[in-house]
Design a protein around this nucleic acid. Structure first.
Length: 703
DNA sequence: CTCAACGTCA
């Protein structure tokens, strides 16, 4: 029952073809997917959905590529239909109503008859091509696609219009036409098919917020989302680095609750998701789950797990996964070695880092840019600049171009070691190697100068950056503004903030945090409030840093009720208070000698499940000290020793201060002594404290 | 493997 192409209606012989239509004509000629689809058009619908899913999972190859397995080559020419529809489309409202087949003109009727035998899969392909055509006239081809659907509906030519709509939405989503997909979806009430298509479209276009919203609306409507959508959403969240563990746990909860099938891909996505969300424990849990049902995770999945373990300092486990990977016959490649290397570099085990690289060499795996920069990081952090430089040379020898990134890492580690003067040398060396510094490098350089109070150098660097045609970004502005604040030049900082906005950069949350801190230090509370309003009207929500800054600045000015209010506000906004935030509060009480309130804040902190760390305890010592309760201050020291919190130079300095506060000068030297015995290196403040105690002692002896 | 900028102690 081979079908001939439908006869071209004689009345449309030579209509001018617009280019997208011509292309469609060509691409549709061989688009029958299977023989079954051709012989049983209606039955093929579910089949073609499944095939779609498979394709989505494993790649993005063009839907309309020829299927070599196709037994029959069928040719349908859709040109007359498309011409007819695009003409009537432009003449009148295309989809005004589709209800009156009786009033059809005979031309249209004849046209419909000629397409009566076209299998559904071919209509689907036609719609997909119309939606994905990327020509400038894309909106008209989308209208055309919609017109095709309406037309099919009018003539009862294709079963399941819901499916056709979802195909349209799906195809639009794949062609980055999310907006059009939404417009289209509004023409129909959402059904599971269209929901799925729309969620799929959002996830593909990295609009995970909309995707998640739709997902929960879908659940509210009593429909189940399919596992492809979960995969796509998790992938999208992972891609954009917006993934966090609790969100992923919630998603998995839904999957479990709805008993949604979890295939290998979804498991891989979940594992990678948890790994990227810095939750290697859960990643490992799911890894074990995959292995228990006989699935072998992909190499990339294992690499992500190794990397996240390394980042958390769980090197032993990272190494175990790495070894396991080798055990299952997978040969680790550069990325896997890099992931492992990252762990050792992070932990500062230079020896192991070197071992990894030499094992790479032994196994014939060539190091790449990342390998070298990690190694350079490791040497630079250890202060071994010469070794870092040798690695640079080695990079060049192995034809791996050292880029600006590597140099900015070197610059950053000089900065962290306090050797900011080296910046010029790094810049010189880099330029002599023919590497042009990029924005990132300049940002680090500005930050370095800013951190060491060289504001002029910082501004010079900024100007130089501009003169080299490198556009600053928000980070550049934030760095500049903040270093002026840190230097106490709040006026200049505010000017820069204004300048930033004048030049068309919109402040981000970090910018607002910096400025809120600045106004807070100046006790300009109205300005603080107006900044908070501005940021929210811009759609930026205060984050944990914002709230901590507020608690800090209000607390330090003695506005405790405002500080507490911020803390409560943050909790009601659904953010979990951090230790840093409680420390800021405890410190605020401590500085005013309000030891009872400090203790109370510590209690609330505990009740929130946070363990007081060294900083909190040091503040508590300060609270007792300032409140002339030196005995309790030393009790805290005792507590620290018993609870595995190692006292530091600040601890002992604060204790000495509390002794001085109650005139027990003679006890100070012993504390200083103990500090040295416990392995703390005295700094300027510690020595100054001892000196002033000695001075007071002399005075009391004299008098 | 996107790196760089913002919050807590003497």
């Amino acid at each position: 029952m081979l079908l001939l192409p439908p006869p071209l209606p004689a009345r449309f012989p030579s209509i001018q073809l617009s280019s997208p239509i011509t292309r469609l004509h060509v691409s549709l000629q061989t688009s029958i997917h299977t023989a079954a689809a051709a012989t049983a058009a209606e039955a093929s619908i579910s089949l073609s959905i499944d095939k779609d899913k498979d394709r989505n999972r494993y790649g993005d190859e063009d839907d309309d590529q020829s299927d070599v397995l196709s037994l029959h080559k069928r040719r349908y020419d859709f040109t007359p239909l498309l011409n007819y529809l695009s003409r009537s489309n432009s003449e009148s409202d295309s989809d005004s109503d589709s209800a009156s087949p009786t009033s059809l003109d005979p031309i249209e009727f004849q046209l419909a008859e000629s397409y009566r035998a076209v299998p559904a899969s071919l209509w689907h392909s036609l719609l997909k091509s119309l939606c994905s055509s990327s020509s400038s006239s894309s909106s008209s081809s989308i209208n055309l696609a919609y017109a095709v659907v309406s037309w099919l509906q009018r003539h009862n030519l294709c079963f399941s219009y819901e499916l056709l709509y979802s195909i349209l939405i799906h195809a639009l989503g794949r062609s980055e036409k999310l907006y059009e997909a939404f417009l289209l979806s509004q023409r129909q009430t959402l059904t599971p098919l269209t929901y799925n298509a729309l969620i799929n479209a959002c996830a593909r276009n990295n609009d995970h917020e909309k995707a998640l919203n739709l997902m929960s609306r879908m659940r509210q409507d009593g429909y189940q989302s399919d596992f492809v959508n979960y995969s796509l959403i998790i992938q999208s969240l992972t891609r954009s680095n917006k993934i966090d563990s609790s969100l992923l746990q919630k998603l998995y909860g839904e999957i479990e609750c709805d008993k949604i099938e979890v295939d290998g891909q979804l498991l891989n996505d979940i594992i990678v998701g948890f790994a990227k969300a810095n939750d290697p424990s859960r990643a490992i849990k799911f890894l074990a789950m995959a292995q228990a049902i006989g699935l072998n995770p992909k190499t990339a999945t294992l690499v992500a797990v190794i990397y996240s373990l390394g980042c958390c300092g769980r090197i032993a486990e990272a190494e175990a996964v790495f070894e396991e990977m080798k055990g299952t016959g997978l040969k680790p490649r550069t990325r896997a070695y890099n992931a492992l290397l990252k762990g050792y570099v992070k932990a500062g085990s230079l020896k192991d880092a070197e071992l990894v690289v030499s094992e790479m060499e032994r196994s014939g795996v060539s190091p790449d840019e990342h390998t070298y920069s990690l190694l350079i990081d490791a040497y630079a952090n250890a202060g071994r600049w010469e070794s870092a430089r040798i690695v640079l040379k080695e990079m060049e020898a192995n034809n791996v171009q050292p880029n600006s990134f590597v140099y900015s890492r070197i610059l950053a580690s000089y900065r962290n070691k306090g050797e900011w003067q080296r910046s010029f040398q790094v810049l010189r060396e880099m330029k002599s190697n023919g590497i042009q510094p990029d924005r990132h490098f300049y940002n680090v350089m500005i930050d370095t100068f800013g951190k060491y109070d060289c504001l002029d150098h910082a501004m010079d660097t900024f100007d130089r950056m501009l003169s080299e045609g490198i556009k600053p970004d928000t980070v550049t502005w934030n760095t500049l503004i903040d270093c002026h604040c840190k230097a106490g030049r709040h006026g200049r900082a505010e000017e820069l903030f204004e300048e930033m906005k004048e030049r068309g950069y919109s402040p981000c949350t970090t910018t607002y945090n910096i400025m809120i801190n600045s106004f807070g230090e100046q006790e300009r509370w109205d300005n603080v409030k107006s900044l908070l309003g501005k940021m929210q009207s811009q759609g930026l929500l205060p984050n944990i840093v914002t709230y901590t800054t507020l608690v800090d600045i209000y607390g330090k000015s003695g506005r405790f009720s405002d500080a507490i209010e911020c803390l409560e506000l943050m909790k009601s906004a659904g953010l979990k208070p951090s230790s840093t935030m409680y420390n800021a509060l405890i410190n605020a009480y401590a500085q005013r000698g309000l030891s009872e309130q400090a203790i109370n804040a510590l209690r609330i902190m505990r009740a929130d499940g946070l363990k007081p760390n060294l900083l909190a305890l040091n503040s508590l010592i300060n609270a007792f000290g300032e409140d002339r309760r030196d005995v309790e201050a030393f009790a805290v020291l005792q507590y620290m020793k018993e609870n595995d919190v190692k006292p530091d130079v600040v601890t002992y300095t604060t204790l000495m201060k509390s002794l001085i506060r109650v005139d027990k000068f003679h006890k100070v030297p012993a504390v200083y002594e103990e500090m040295i015995l416990s392995g703390c290196t005295p700094d300027r403040k510690a020595r100054a404290m001892l000196r002033s105690a000695l001075r007071y002692m002399k005075q009391t002896v004299k008098s």
